[in-house]
Design a protein around this nucleic acid. Structure first.
Lengths: 206, 206
DNA sequence: TAGATTGTTAATCGATTAACAATC
DNA sequence: TAGATTGTTAATCGATTAACAATC
């Protein structure tokens, strides 16, 4: 029922369930079934039911799942029933684009601190945010209580930045630098590396 | 030995092997072992050996793997022994950042066509590339023979763009729009959705 | 009620790991 | 040679799927 003993592969599917459920809701549906969800996601209905049943019985025999109710449950399970603040380190083109995006659904994720070590950038504004000196990173993040960070610095700086972030109390890192970060296991790390995905696809091309 | 009958989960690890091998080479190593690779990647040595042995015997008992040799083999297997041209659709902040990046290793992936449907952007330059009208997309991509595209348009436009790309002959799509694309199975699709990764991590936070 | 669909168990499937002979 | 490490087989582990009683 709880964080532990849920296979990570199950957890990794929950955000996708949420995505599809929101879409179905937008389209005016009030209920759905494991069959429909499975179809939308390319999974078997059995897997959907099995995954969801690890957290409780959210459906009704005969009628399926109430969409708003299931969305609420998944939001709770994934701890999305609150706002998460994020620090972003490295305000190059990509960091800049992410900082400006802020489209992270309904503001449940909000970038609220920007850092760079480049003197010509420090003090500049991106939207409402001012770029801070990376040297101030640890105290500023500590004080803010921020738990999530994004890394968009060059590859050779990423490990140092990541280690500093952990020192500052960060517990989850979304890493855009194409390197494998070595961090204590209590820290969550997810990597975004388009190149790996391209290389995966070219295997199937000629 | 070939594209077929290799589990996709094995293929998905090969780009990471390549990444680590290049790093080890940069650090001045000439050979490595399944033990070392496993350590770097957080995998068991047995898995590394098993994965690689699906494509051939690349190692030597007693001495391990010759790094440059293994890099060459993996590049061949993943079809990275050539340059891949890419069309990018949607030159907003993110598309712009990707188009400028061009750091895709050693230019093996090169964005060479940009499209947007916004009149105020058409004709503008990003680096050396001129932004073209999305209306010209199908003929221009067809003529170029490009097989890979990146989608960085707003979510509600993504499916239409993807369908057009497939009509134009594109066979692999790296999709940055937060929607599930519905495309013929012959088309490779990889999604990059930072929000899904954030939502995955918050499960483990409090 | 009859039809639909859940939650769950048991069966299947596939992926990972341990172990070891082969051999550099 | 002795030590190291591969490639591969067999054993284990875990995830997916099929099936069905329960029940809305």
């Amino acid at each position: 029922m709880n964080e532990k003993n849920i296979p990570d592969i199950v957890v990794s599917r929950l955000p996708r369930y949420l995505q599809v459920l929101k879409q179905l809701l937008d389209e005016g549906n009030a209920t759905t079934s494991s069959n429909e969800l499975g179809y939308c996601l390319g999974l078997t209905p059995a897997q959907i039911r099995k995954d969801l049943s690890m957290f409780g019985g959210f459906g009704k025999q005969g009628t399926g799942y109430n969409i708003p109710f299931l969305i609420d449950r998944l939001n709770e399970i994934l701890h999305l029933d609150r706002q998460w603040l994020i620090a972003l380190v490295g305000v190059g083109d990509l960091g800049h684009a992410l900082a400006r995006y802020q489209g992270f659904t309904g503001g449940r994720f909000r970038i609220c601190l920007l850092f760079d070590r480049e003197p010509s950038l420090i003090g500049n504004k991106v939207g409402e945010l001012t770029i801070r000196d990376s040297k101030e990173m640890i105290p500023l993040i500590k004080d803010s209580g921020i738990q999530i960070a994004m890394i968009t610095v060059p590859p050779d700086e990423a490990q140092d930045v990541a280690s500093s972030l952990v020192k500052a109390g960060v517990r989850a890192i979304l890493n855009y630098a194409p390197v494998v970060l070595r961090l204590p296991p209590k820290v969550q790390v997810q990597n975004i590396d388009p190149e790996l995905k391209l290389e995966h696809m070219t295997f199937y091309l000629e």
